[in-house]
């Protein structure tokens, strides 16, 4: 019976990411490769963070509650900073790779734009971090039990799934903003990404008050989404055109050969 919970949570957490993958990435092999490479970079950052974490837990005083709490905050901050460092490293690598790709390809233009790369790598980061934050929870959601024997909220699985969905989408947005900031040397944007990542991660300390962690996270996600939309070249006018379907360009666009 609790297979229902498992599938429900999986769909919530990964539904948006999977549909993005299906419609925008899966068709093009180069994007799949960059997505997986992005996921790999995120994994390496996690490995670094967990090494530091293991060592610091060992040398800390396990009896002291305040020290363990401090260690947890330190771990989260360190992990966020490492992730952003690796995002930057991945950006540098992609720049280099793109030059190589340009040299190889017969066409004049780059086979993949840096803006697309930003989106693809952000989604790669999101996939992996989402998987790591929710897979062990999903494994236990199969049942037979549900959370709550110690008085915890029984909406634990549902809120974890929604949190994961937000994290995945946020990683995608952060990727777009971050790469754009690097590209245009707008370091403020990069700083905003790091700051909002830190904010969202620290919001999870609010758990188990799921409302007070989920609502701000979704607010941050909304603003990041809007920012990323504009960064990617979207605008209110475009959106209007798109929704009303009255633009001449639209018809033109559909007829333009690829």
């Amino acid at each position: 019976m609790t297979a229902a919970v498992f599938f429900g949570c999986t769909f919530i957490a990964f539904g948006p990411a999977v549909s993005l993958f299906l419609f925008t990435i899966a068709r093009e092999p180069l994007r799949v490769i960059f997505l997986i490479a992005g996921a790999f970079f995120w994994l390496v950052s996690l490995l670094m963070a967990s090494l530091v974490w293991f060592i610091s837990v060992q040398i800390s005083n396990k009896e002291s509650v305040s020290q363990q709490k401090g260690l947890l905050i330190f771990g989260v901050v360190l992990s966020v900073l490492l992730q952003e460092t690796f995002r930057f490293a991945y950006y540098k690598l992609l720049k280099k790779a793109n030059e190589g790709l340009l040299a190889l390809s017969q066409e004049e233009t780059m086979p993949i734009s840096i803006r697309q790369l930003a989106y693809v790598s952000g989604l790669g980061f999101g996939f992996m971090s989402g998987a790591f934050s929710v897979v062990n929870i999903l494994a236990d959601s199969v049942g037979p039990g549900t959370v709550g024997i110690h008085g915890d909220s029984q909406h634990y699985f549902l809120s974890s799934a929604f949190m994961t969905m937000a994290i995945i989408l946020l990683h995608m947005f952060w990727g777009i903003i971050f790469f754009d900031g690097c590209e245009k040397q707008r370091w403020l944007a990069v700083a905003a990404v790091v700051a909002s990542h830190l904010l969202v991660s620290c919001l999870t300390f609010q758990n188990p008050q799921y409302v007070s962690s989920l609502v701000p996270t979704y607010v941050v996600m909304f603003f990041m989404g809007v920012w990323a939309f504009y960064t990617a070249g979207g605008s209110l006018r475009n959106l209007k055109l798109c929704l009303t379907c009255k633009d001449k360009d639209f018809l033109l666009a559909n007829h333009r050969p690829r």
């Binding site: 019976m1 609790t2 229902a4 919970v5 599938f7 429900g8 949570c9 999986t10 769909f11 919530i12 539904g15 948006p16 999977v18 549909s19 049942g143 037979p144 039990g145 549900t146 959370v147 709550g148 024997i149 029984q154 699985f157 549902l158 799934a161 969905m165």
Partner: peptide, 22 residues
């Protein structure tokens, strides 16, 4: 082992929301 079991309704709600989101 002992644990709590969720109602059928809540399970179905989770599944429904999941399918809706997907």
């Amino acid at each position: 082992r002992i644990f709590l079991v969720a109602s059928h309704d809540l399970e179905m709600l989770t599944l429904g929301v999941g399918i809706g989101v997907l």
